[in-house]
Design a protein around this nucleic acid. Structure first.
Lengths: 256, 256
DNA sequence: TCAATAGTGTCTTTGAGACAGTATGTC
DNA sequence: GACATACTGTCTCAAAGACACTATTGA
């Protein structure tokens, strides 16, 4: 680090949250309507500034998660940093974006202060001619968060974070289908998920149908990294309508 | 974002660089000796504070890359943010860590101001009973950076960033062996690398042996994502001596 | 009975890993 | 010639994808 007599500039640090969940088999993100300038009235990702000098970044993210979404004990990981000068008209604001995964149906948000928060289908925001415009660079942050979720579904047990404590295999399949925007063969999915060692483990001989044969219940297994992985078939032909995979540049790295 | 009448705290923003390269078939990282407090005399990752209010984060990383390592036009990507309160005794310093990959043999650093910079074998720093102690939380940053490189080698063409503009297949194999800390079968590696569509393309019928049969030269192909991927054999039995894979927690995400 | 979903089996293709064998250079 | 490295072929096994088939529920 350079340590001269000169004073380095300081910045405002914020956290922003990409909170994803599944609602009626579609991927949704939690948005809030901004009540103040800038971007008053526009939708934005939940987030806020550090509370005080001594607050850790993840602590701030969890605080916002509780304050704005009423969520606790959910999967949370850092996505990256967004700090382009000029991204916020108020000055130099650097935002640390986080990805949170909420299990489905935690109600449209309990009675939190975030009265204006609402779950929005991700495609409505990310699709080329999007209905919903987001404040700041939040559309890009959302795109990166979704891409992160897609990738982690392949190699980790993240999908179980979308489910309740116990779940059926077809519920798990819905997660993959919604996040990837593809349709999968139930029979092959069944085998594949079972053959990934430690991914899911049986949770009682229980059952709970609606129509059709009752299904076994499972819970998340011990492993974090999947082997064999749940590879997304690269050879196309599976994309389902509204696939939001287009028009997003997921990776920022450049080669020489 | 919360927008009250209260003033949010500001922080100092720094960039730190994990610059990796290959030297005599081993993975090395560039370290600098700190000339001032804190941690005077200790080794640290190259890095520094933002220069001014208007400097972008990636721009700052590239500036440090040039100033401290004399490198330009190399692969650069963000690793993550390290901002625990108390990580820097000077106050609240939030560091954005980056991973840079330098092609091998750019000389032990040209005549830059970083006279004290030196390439250090990664294992010497990361191994359990490490010889080299790093300042701040830089050991953890290095571990995360190495883990990032390991993972990206599987699914992207990042390995070519370690090589010169043209390279032989066995040179590419050395990259994988050094970064993963494993030994690979040359025959299978040959086939595998060739079957990954768009990974490498022939670069002239050239050749350049030292002993043994001359090898064909290749250059980096057009694709970024590898298919099929170069999967690290999960079933162990391949780790080579000094494997630094142990004792590192690469992932910070937690499930509910 | 049918509709609907759960779960099993089987076949084909692709790729991973082991390793024999051939090609082409230097000494 | 020996030696070293580059490259090819072949075998076996594991897993992906396609899809026929059976099982178990409710209506």
């Amino acid at each position: 680090m350079t340590d001269d007599r000169w004073e380095p500039p300081s910045v405002l640090l914020a956290v922003d949250l990409v909170i994803l969940t599944l609602r009626d088999a579609r991927l949704h993100v939690l948005l809030v309507e901004r009540g103040v300038e800038p971007y008053q009235g526009a939708f934005a990702l939940p987030g806020g500034f550090l509370h005080d000098e001594d607050e850790g970044i993840e602590a701030a993210a969890r605080r916002e998660l509780a304050e704005e979404a009423g969520l606790a004990d959910v999967h949370l990981e850092m996505i990256g940093v967004y700090g382009d000068p000029g991204r916020d008209p108020r000055g130099r604001v650097v935002s640390v974006a986080h990805l949170a995964i909420a299990p489905w149906l935690p109600d449209p948000i309990a009675g939190t202060d975030a009265a204006s928060a609402c779950w929005t289908p991700v495609e409505d925001v990310l699709f080329a001619s999007a209905y919903v415009q987001l404040a700041f660079d939040h559309r890009r942050i959302l795109a990166d968060g979704v891409e992160r979720a897609r990738t982690k579904l392949e190699h980790t047990s993240l999908a179980t974070a979308f489910c309740a404590k116990t779940f059926t295999i077809s519920e798990l399949q819905q997660v993959y289908e919604a996040v990837w925007g593809v349709r999968l063969d139930p029979r092959n999915f069944y085998r594949k998920v079972q053959s990934a060692r430690g991914f899911i483990v049986p949770a009682g001989p229980m059952r709970r149908p609606q129509s059709g044969r009752p299904a076994r219940l499972f819970k998340a297994g011990p492993v974090q990294a999947l082997y064999p992985p749940m590879v997304r078939s690269t050879q196309p032909g599976h994309e389902v309508l509204g696939g939001h995979a287009a028009g997003i540049a997921p990776e920022g790295g450049e080669h020489a």
